[in-house]
Amino acid sequence: MSKGVLLVNLGSPDSTNHKDVKRYLGEFLMDERVIDVPLWARTLLVKGIILNTRPKKSAEAYEKIWWEEGSPLIVLSERLQSKIDDHTSVPVSLAMRYGKPSIMNGLQELYDKGVKEVLLFPLYPQFAMATTETILVLAEEIRKEHFPDMKFITVPPFYNHPDYIRTLANSISEHLDGKDFEHLLFSYHGVPERHIRKSDVTKSHCKIDGSCCQTASAAHQFCYRHQCFETTRLVAEYLKLKPNTYSVSFQSRLGFDPWLKPYTDRTIERFGKQGMKKLAVVTPAFVSDCLETLEEIAMEGEEIFHEVGGKDFTVVPCLNDRQEWVKVLSRWVDEWAHQTPVEA
């Protein structure tokens, strides 16, 4: 059976044009796994309120980080896909959950090459309803309708895979080499607290009380919060970081419901007010730099830090198409293609 790989990332508007940004936000925010309320309420919230106010602000943010070649997320994802394709024995295609190229187009591209068994590869280290799960659900819907003879094998979240931890740690070490910083903040994308409870397969473990993430449970297989803390713990262990020199926060909240805490913006502000002068930030929920890393952290985060007295603000780039990362992913692909498990 012919094999192939579909890398899937989040997505981006086609341009910084207001209409393109509005179209993208509409697709993204109407996803029931992003805003998980009844359709009528989601429609009222998204189409009646958010899409009448947010696109202008988002378009301005995209304009700040847009590259000549296009969206940084798309460009970097394309570079990664191209390099992996060059290093592996099976065809590798790229898709976005929202926007272009679509999952439908990515699967069609592989199908046209005779691929019948697809390694579905969500480019998210940690599992979440609004990232990994929505990709898997949509891909399966498309497979059933358009490619019923295709078979999917899914790459599990790799938040604790030794190869990923080593590569992330090496990237952090390289970019902070020679820089004198007081604290390393691991900033992860935020999700509503209810998403954590909804993903709890035990229906009782996840209490978000400060201890459940450190207590062994089957819930951890789908617990975004646990996986973020575990990534941090393993990287800190690898880098031999001293206690109290690193911490975790969550960014990009939306609406008024409680989201995972502590919030990144308030954490950065608090550090500055406490007299911290040199802060470094890494964003391990993303493998490709995007609006959330390039604008929200590298621009807004730095502005907040400076406003409250901070001096040096260093942002560690995502893994992007880093050569070590390309080699890791290429090896995982070839191990799968030759029937060797990719799990740790």
Rank of each mutant, 00 (worst) to 15 (best):
L329A: 04
A285Y: 00
D180M: 12
L110K: 02
E295T: 02
N9C: 10
I304Q: 06
F147Y: 12
T231M: 12
L168D: 03
C290T: 09
T314I: 15
S89D: 12
H18D: 06
N52F: 04
M1T: 05
P162H: 09
A218P: 09
D200L: 13
K151V: 11
V75S: 15
A61K: 10
F186M: 05
Y159A: 01
L7M: 10
I135F: 05
L168W: 03
L94N: 14
Y24T: 07
N105A: 06
L73W: 12
M299Q: 15
I196E: 10
I196F: 09
N17L: 08
E343W: 06
K277V: 10
V235C: 10
I172T: 10
P101M: 01
D86Q: 15
Y111E: 02
I135N: 07
M30D: 03
K3A: 03
E296H: 04
K203W: 10
A216P: 07
R42L: 03
E69K: 13
E140R: 12
F127V: 03
T283R: 00
K207Y: 01
I142L: 11
K57C: 00
S249Q: 12
R97T: 08
D163W: 00
F271D: 09
V8I: 15
Q108W: 00
G255P: 04
I142K: 02
L138E: 15
V235M: 12
V282H: 08
E335H: 09
V92F: 12
A169Y: 00
C223H: 04
L291N: 14
R79N: 15
V75Y: 14
F250L: 01
F186V: 07
L73I: 14
V37A: 09
Y98P: 09
G11D: 09
K240S: 15
E32G: 11
M1D: 05
E133K: 14
V201Q: 13
P243A: 09
F250H: 11
Y124I: 02
G4L: 04
H189G: 01
S171T: 14
L44I: 13
A298E: 07
L329D: 06
T293H: 07
R253F: 02
R194Q: 11
Y164C: 10
F158W: 15
K207D: 07
L80V: 14
L6F: 07
L184R: 01
V191P: 07
D14V: 04
V191C: 06
H183G: 07
S199A: 15
V281G: 04
D177Y: 11
R166A: 06
L7R: 05
H205M: 11
P341A: 00
K56L: 06
T267P: 02
L123V: 12
L120Y: 08
K113L: 12
Q323Y: 11
M150R: 06
N320I: 13
L6V: 03
Y263W: 06
D112W: 00
E140S: 08
C213P: 02
N170Q: 10
